[in-house]
Amino acid sequence: MAASSDKTIKFNENAKSNPYWFQVMVNGKRVTRRGFKTITEAKKARAAIITELSKGEYIEPNKMSFGSYFEQWLSGRANIAHSTRKMYESYFRTHINPVLGDIPLSKINATHMEQLIASIREKELGDEMVKRIFATVNASLNAAERKDLISKNAANKIEKPTVKRKERAVWDIDTVREFFQATKNESRYWIAAYLAVMTGMRQGEILALRWSDIDMEKGIIQVRRNLVKNMTIFTGLKTEKSRRTIAISQQIISILEEQRQKNELEKQNPKIKYEDNDLVVCSSKGTPATATKVIHAWKTMQQNYKPESAPTITFHDLRHTHASIMLRQGVHPKVVSERLGHSTITLTLDTYSHLLPNMQEEAADSLESTIGLKF
């Protein structure tokens, strides 16, 4: 096979997005590729096709399997976080490839998409997981449609999976107080759970927190990075809103000072080959703490110390507990949204909408008590 020597990347002035496109000659036929956001992306795609042609590895779109296409699509997404890429790879390997992998990309239809959803649901996965896997396939097919590899995205022809919002289990103030007072010296990872309930930070953000991210004098934590789950890879945060500053109380500062002293004692232990990573939460050797060990410690503390009347909650539910307590105390939703690092205040209100009826009732009672009309 041979490609045309014309390397011109063309621009579609009428396209609202992804305006760049190009053509190459394959077996005497002019092949068009559209839907590139920048001229650089178009050049890279064209160069990749020419390289494949020169090696005899080029597969025409009508003969390419969805599995081959998906792997190419994912490898070309340079701007996604490492953790996101690993998540997509896991979705593909476990759920997508067994159902769609061998089907020609050009033959993917609505029935195939319905079979994919049915296959995922048979594994009794939650609504959120079904929606995420479907959205990943949908995104890959949208890209294929933009590039004229397929005429239509079959995922747009079926009813998309939805998530039935469930009320998250959270602890009340009394449970939080009783539990954290009782467990303070039970695990080296107690500090991680404490920070989760007191700051609303995500687990990966807590495990990536450095002492240099904390200003004890000003009483603030700078949230700047994330630890990839069960790995020792630190990444930047996905959105600008996730990069945030969280105010902390004097009690939190005191607890952090205690933790720093513990870390220093371990660092000075001659029997331990300590690796100083400046981490607030770490292993006894100073290395990053894995999510698995932190979650195991959290479950063990609950089994031993959780009040019988309180629900069993996940580590992530500590973040929800933080938000629900603040909202019930009358903290403005915008402040709560900023502490959580939500992209919009709307997301915060939607997530905790189940609290609003009670809050409205409390507000009405408070208003009546304040005005105090007597008839």
Rank of each mutant, 00 (worst) to 15 (best):
A81W: 03
T38V: 05
I50W: 02
G28I: 06
V99I: 15
P61C: 11
L100H: 11
Y20F: 13
Q72D: 01
D102H: 14
I108F: 03
R85A: 11
R34Y: 02
M113A: 13
I120R: 05
V26S: 10
K107P: 12
T84K: 03
R34M: 08
A78S: 12
E114H: 04
Y20Q: 12
V99K: 14
F66W: 09
A47W: 04
Q115S: 12
N97F: 08
T84G: 00
L105F: 10
T38G: 08
Q23C: 13
K107S: 12
G28N: 04
W21M: 14
T32P: 15
W73V: 06
E114T: 08
K43F: 07
V99Q: 13
I103N: 15
T38M: 07
E41V: 05
A118M: 04
T84A: 02
M87H: 04
T40D: 04
M113I: 13
T111G: 08
I96N: 00
I96S: 01
I39E: 04
Y69L: 08
G67D: 01
Q23L: 13
K37G: 09
K37R: 10
N62G: 14
S54V: 01
S68C: 06
A78H: 06
H95Q: 15
L53C: 04
L125T: 01
K43V: 05
R93T: 03
K43P: 03
D102W: 13
A78G: 06
I80R: 08
Q23T: 11
A78W: 05
R93N: 09
P104W: 00
T38I: 08
G35Q: 09
E89V: 03
E60C: 13
Y91L: 07
Y20M: 13
M64Q: 10
A48L: 12
G28S: 06
I96Q: 06
V26L: 07
M87T: 03
V26P: 09
H82Q: 05
T111I: 00
G56N: 05
P98D: 01
T40W: 03
F66D: 09
T40M: 07
V99S: 13
E57L: 12
T51Y: 14
E122Y: 00
G28F: 10
G126W: 00
G56H: 05
T32H: 15
I117S: 11
I50D: 02
I117D: 00
K123R: 10
W21P: 12
K107I: 02
S68I: 00
L74T: 01
V31E: 14
I50Y: 02
I120G: 06
E89G: 12
M113Q: 12
L100P: 13
M25S: 13
T32V: 15
T94V: 14
K107F: 05
R34Q: 08
V24C: 07
N109T: 01
R34G: 08
H112E: 09
F66S: 12
R77Y: 01
N79W: 04
K63T: 00
S90G: 09
V31H: 15
